[in-house]
């Protein structure tokens, strides 16, 4: 059988993902993460009497800690699996990806295990994050003058 014909059969029996439902779940749960972030932001700004710009670093660190800690406790993967992009796109997804890789390679040593494998998933986020920040920064300077 030709490859094309076979791929048609495969396509026929491959179930469709429910994109609208997944999108809705991600919208709601991602929104909830946003609300929690906003609450934390205001909380830190109020408690420590700092600007919201400074408080945002505190808020990010808190979210990273919560998602890394929950990953270690072993239930965060089920939550991510349900919320999908709602938890993967915010900073929680980045922390989760790093922590889960670190946990996997913990028994292979600090340097050869955790050190060299921790960024297995999250490494590309950093590389392309830094690169795009650089290029978009240049574009911003050229268009808006800084």
């Amino acid at each position: 059988m030709e490859r094309k014909k076979y791929q048609e059969i495969v396509k026929k029996y491959t179930p469709k993902e429910n994109r609208i439902y997944n999108g809705l779940i991600a919208f709601i749960t991602g929104g909830i993460v946003g609300v929690i972030g906003e609450l934390l932001l205001n909380f830190y700004a109020y408690i420590f009497h700092i600007s919201t710009k400074d408080a945002s670093s505190f808020m990010i660190v808190t979210l990273i800690f919560i998602s890394a800690f929950c990953t270690c406790l072993g239930f965060f993967d089920k939550l991510v699996n349900f919320c999908k992009a709602g938890l993967i796109v915010p900073i929680t997804g980045f922390a989760h990806a790093m922590m889960s890789a670190a946990l996997d390679y913990k028994k292979e040593g600090l340097v050869t295990g955790i050190g060299s494998n921790m960024f297995k998933l999250a490494g590309s986020v950093i590389i392309f994050g830094v690169c795009s920040a650089y290029f978009f920064g240049i574009i911003r300077i050229l268009i808006f003058g800084g």
Binding site: P15, V80, A97, S100, A101
Partner: peptide, 17 residues
């Protein structure tokens, strides 16, 4: 999972197949 897919505790969604 560790060798072929994602880390064990990583919860990224997978297709139904």
């Amino acid at each position: 999972e560790k060798q072929f897919r994602y880390p064990v505790e990583y919860g990224g969604p997978k297709p139904k197949t």
